[in-house]
């Protein structure tokens, strides 16, 4: 173990402020947990109802810690899409985690690698929202890291409970009632929440337009074109807004 890591782990273990910060994080994220359970439940049901076996659904829930990625992947698997198409789609819809990792690098950047990888793996939209709400500038890193862990861990556990319950419950629900669509509805809600400004309205509208036009295009080109066009539209609106402000 490097000297750096040793210093970190001893500080980590001794600090009483760490426990307080951990608890602060748990309190900060608690109000958001009902949403996490329902999202997990819906995802679990959608996994099974879309046609995955119980084993595959459990594997997906255990390995892929991202509701969006799971819900995005299922219809593609069912439709028999090729692996590159699945990869591109998941990459594009999960780009936000790359952006999160860039913002988190400031707070977690100097931790020992295993801790960085662990906390990185546990990052979720919900945890990051709670962390940003409770985060205070100038706090020592030990506290910031504990606060972040306190936000992440409950979300992970509650999510797993929700999706396991969903996979279990799915077998009791009637077959063929189109319950796989519940997953789509969850993604619709998440998408709607991202529309908060003029530029995001432009991004969504243009992306939807191009996606509908390109429904028949091969190799997921419609999807790719929609993302590029949506980004371009949003950036155009933002630059127009900046010009008007000046």
């Amino acid at each position: 173990m490097s000297r750096f890591a040793l210093r970190w782990s001893s500080r980590w273990a001794r600090s009483g402020a760490r426990r307080t910060a951990l608890r602060d994080g748990m309190f900060a994220v608690a109000p958001l947990l009902p949403g996490t359970v329902s999202w997990g439940l819906v995802t679990g049901i959608a996994l099974v109802k879309a046609g995955l076996t119980t084993g595959q659904a459990l594997g997906m829930a255990a390995l892929v810690f991202s509701g969006t990625a799971q819900l995005v992947t299922i219809p593609l698997i069912v439709a028999g899409a090729s692996l590159p198409v699945v990869m591109l789609t998941v990459f594009l819809t999960n780009l936000r985690f790359i952006i999160y990792s860039a913002t988190l690098a400031r707070d977690l950047g100097r931790l020992p690698l295993p801790l960085r990888l662990g906390l990185g793996y546990l990052t979720s939209d919900t945890a990051l929202a709670a962390y940003r709400l409770r985060y205070r500038d100038g706090e020592p890193q030990v506290q910031r890291v504990a606060l972040f862990a306190g936000c992440c861990i409950p979300v992970y556990l509650v999510w797993q409970i929700g999706s396991l319950a969903g996979i279990g419950v799915a077998h009791l629900l009637p077959a063929g009632a189109g319950l796989g669509y519940l997953g789509t509805l969850a993604v619709v809600a998440m998408t709607a929440a991202l529309v908060r400004s003029a530029s995001s309205v432009a991004a969504a509208a243009v992306a939807i337009g191009v996606a509908l036009l390109g429904r028949g295009w091969p190799y997921s080109l419609g999807m790719f074109g929609a993302v590029v066009a949506g980004i371009a539209a949003a950036m155009l609106v933002e630059s127009l807004q900046r010009r008007r402000a000046r």
Binding site: L92, L95, I98, A102, G120, G230
Partner: peptide
């Protein structure tokens, strides 16, 4: 970016473009 050097973080236009990608992708998908 928890692994890559911090200097490689996206900035400016690239960062702005990346920030719009998830919404565009999700909207196009659903």
């Amino acid at each position: 970016f928890l692994i890559l050097p911090r200097e490689w973080r996206p900035r400016g236009l690239l960062e702005q473009a990346l920030s719009h990608a998830p919404l565009a992708a999700l909207a196009a998908l659903v």
